[in-house]
Amino acid sequence: MSLFITLRFLDVLDILLVAFLLYQLYLLIKGTVAFNIFVGLFLIYLFWLVVRALNMELLGNFMGQFIGVGILALIVVFQPEIRRFLILIGSNPQVNRFLRVEKLFHSDKTKSASGQHLRMMVRACENMAKTKTGALIIIAQNSELKEYIRTGEKINARISDALLETIFFKNTPLHDGAVIINGNKISAARCILPLTSKVNINPLFGLRHRAAIGVTENSDAFAIIVSEENGNISIAEGGELTPNITVIELSSRLENIIIETEDAE
C-alpha cells in the first residue's frame, strides 16, 4: 500500500479554483444577511455528515431529504447574490471584448459623456453640497439600467448643472429618488432603486446611500450621493461606498470612468 498521495497538476488546479470560488463567494455575501444564512446551511450540512457517520438512520433519512432539495433552496435564498454574480461576469469589459458582443447589445447606445458634461456634473454636486441639497445621481456604464429608468419620469435631456440642481431642488416633484445618466443624457429622474441588504452600514447613512450601494451591487453603475444632512459627497461602485470625498476626487474618478468606457469600446 502506498503511503504517499499522488497529486497531479490538475488536482492542484482544481483545489485552487475551488478556493478562489469560495473566496469570491465570501466577498459577495460578506456583511449581508445571506452570509448568516450560508453559515447556518453549512452547519446543518456538517451535522448531517456526523449523523451519517454515526449511522442514525431515521434522523439521517430526514435530513437527507432536506439536503436533497438544498440546491433549489439555495437558488431561492441566494437569488439576489446569484443575480449580482452573473451581472458582474456579463458586464466585465474583458469578457465582452473577448466574446465580441458589446457592440451587438449596445450598438444604439448614446455617446459617452464628454469632459464638458463631466464638469457640469461636478459643478452641480459642488453647488448642491454647499446648499445641503440631497441628491442621488446614477451613471450607467455597460448596463443601461432600463429596468430602473422605467420606474421614474423619463427626461432624455442633455446633461447640465442647472438641470440637475433644478431636479433635486427640495420643492420640485422630481427631487425624491434617483437621476439616471446614460451616456451624455439624463435619461430619467425620480427613479426607484433597490436597497442593499448589507447590515454593517454606518447608521448615519440614509436611504440615498443604501440605494446607491444597492444599485451598484446589482449592476456596474457608478453612484454619486450628496448628503442632505451635512452636504458631504460620497460615491458608490461595486457595492462599496466611499464617503466624504472632495470635489477634486470626484472629478478624478469621473474622468477615470470616461477613460475606462472609451477603452471598453
Score class of each variant (00 low, 15 high):
193 L>G: 03
183 G>K: 07
244 N>D: 14
259 I>P: 05
191 C>L: 06
170 K>Y: 13
84 R>W: 00
69 V>N: 09
152 G>S: 07
140 A>I: 07
145 L>M: 12
64 G>N: 13
165 E>D: 11
120 M>T: 04
130 K>Y: 09
160 S>I: 04
34 A>N: 07
45 Y>D: 03
125 C>G: 03
176 D>C: 06
84 R>F: 00
166 T>H: 11
64 G>W: 11
127 N>V: 13
7 L>G: 03
221 A>S: 13
1 M>R: 01
209 H>P: 02
255 E>F: 12
226 V>M: 05
130 K>S: 08
65 Q>W: 14
5 I>K: 12
69 V>D: 02
141 Q>W: 05
201 I>Y: 05
258 I>D: 03
105 F>E: 10
88 L>Y: 01
158 R>K: 13
37 I>L: 13
189 A>H: 03
206 G>K: 12
52 R>G: 04
222 F>W: 05
105 F>N: 12
2 S>R: 09
50 V>A: 13
137 I>N: 02
30 K>T: 06
19 A>R: 14
6 T>N: 12
212 A>L: 02
196 T>I: 01
55 N>Y: 07
65 Q>H: 09
120 M>K: 13
198 K>Q: 03
88 L>E: 02
176 D>M: 08
129 A>L: 04
207 L>N: 11
189 A>C: 09
72 L>R: 06
247 V>H: 03
54 L>N: 07
156 N>S: 12
74 L>C: 11
197 S>L: 03
59 L>Q: 07
252 S>V: 05
37 I>H: 14
260 E>V: 12
24 Q>A: 13
51 V>H: 02
259 I>T: 15
66 F>V: 15
48 W>V: 04
98 F>Y: 12
98 F>A: 11
130 K>H: 10
66 F>I: 15
82 I>G: 00
91 S>M: 11
256 N>Q: 15
201 I>D: 01
247 V>I: 15
208 R>T: 02
227 S>L: 06
141 Q>D: 12
1 M>W: 04
100 R>H: 14
155 I>P: 00
27 L>W: 08
83 R>A: 12
179 V>P: 01
26 Y>I: 11
74 L>P: 00
232 N>Y: 09
67 I>K: 03
148 Y>W: 11
136 L>P: 00
159 I>A: 01
188 A>I: 07
212 A>M: 01
140 A>Q: 04
5 I>H: 11
181 I>M: 01
35 F>E: 10
61 N>K: 13
241 L>S: 06
263 D>V: 14
196 T>K: 03
256 N>A: 14
173 P>H: 05
84 R>G: 00
74 L>E: 08
27 L>V: 02
